[in-house]
Design a binder for these strands. Structure first.
Lengths: 155, 155
DNA sequence: GCGATATGATTGACGCATCAATCAGAAGGG
DNA sequence: CCCTTCTGATTGATGCGTCAATCATATCGC
């Protein structure tokens, strides 16, 4: 049975397609780590720290239930709990008992955490612009939207 | 000084651009982890295991110097050393002394490691086709090449 | 109310990545 | 030759992410 007529489910990617795939993941990984390195250097925060602080900063009172935070940033509760422990040790956030549910924990942004976030945000956005937005033409930026839409639904 | 005339280096991404960026990294992360989960389920290998085994399998004699391997897959020697330790414990590879340089280590693929690699490779390639190649039109695949070329040079 | 169950959150164990420190052996200069 | 320096590789400490187990409290059904 010649390759062209093999069943759809058994087809393998061509060398070309595989090369495109490889270039794709390598490039995205490179981008991600370059961004992370700049964020770290400029503010001492990891991307995870930043995600937590951003969510916390976006609340009205710099305070949020742990489970709500987990959902909002799309993390497992366990991961969040571990990470909050580390952030608490560094003084970036504080944990308080929840008034309405004594099982619950409320996470509050400390002044230290807020300062770190403020110090981080503009340089971070600038880095995104430099490494991503400025590297692409308007057409290419549209192509990114098109691609993420196409890739998004199936994983 | 109005935003439009601010110096180039201080400009920040627009909400649109930021949304595109977010969608981009989230989608790539999702893709990556979906692939990893399938690989793990089908063969018990992590993407890192696979990278090591692939490089080893591609040599003539299933044997390679540790430092050469590190360079070939783009890892720090330290990372490789730790990972090889874990792979050795699982019986996937073996470490032997190098004949020409007694500081050196030679990594050899064990039958177990070879079997795991063989078991993994076709399903893995198939997953790449399903989750990436098949999700995109030929034009979109070209767009990916275009994008990686544009993003690649600067990080 | 009370027992079963569901839920908010933490913990522990493990694999993984990075950094700095280390160690043994090779290479080069005197 | 010996000493210095360089290099291949490993180690230990620490942060991070996942999974399964745990714990305490809430909630539901009776």
């Amino acid at each position: 049975m010649p390759p062209a007529t093999r069943s759809r489910s058994r087809r393998l990617p061509t060398k070309q397609q595989l090369a495109t795939w490889r270039a794709f993941i390598e490039t995205t990984e490179q981008l991600r780590s370059a961004l992370a390195a700049r964020l770290q250097a400029e503010s001492g925060l990891s991307p995870s720290d930043y995600a937590v602080l951003l969510a916390l900063h976006d609340t009205d009172d710099h305070r949020i239930r742990s489970s709500v935070l987990a959902t909002r940033i799309g993390w497992q509760r366990s991961r969040l709990s571990h990470h909050l422990g580390r952030m608490e040790r560094r003084g970036l956030i504080d944990r308080q008992e929840c008034s309405t549910d004594s099982r619950g924990a409320e996470i509050v942004l400390t002044p230290t955490g807020d300062a770190a976030f403020r110090r981080a945000t503009v340089p971070h956005l600038r880095a995104i612009r430099e490494l991503f937005v400025d590297a692409l033409s308007p057409d290419q930026l549209e192509a990114v939207q098109d691609l993420t839409a196409a890739l998004g639904g199936r994983a």
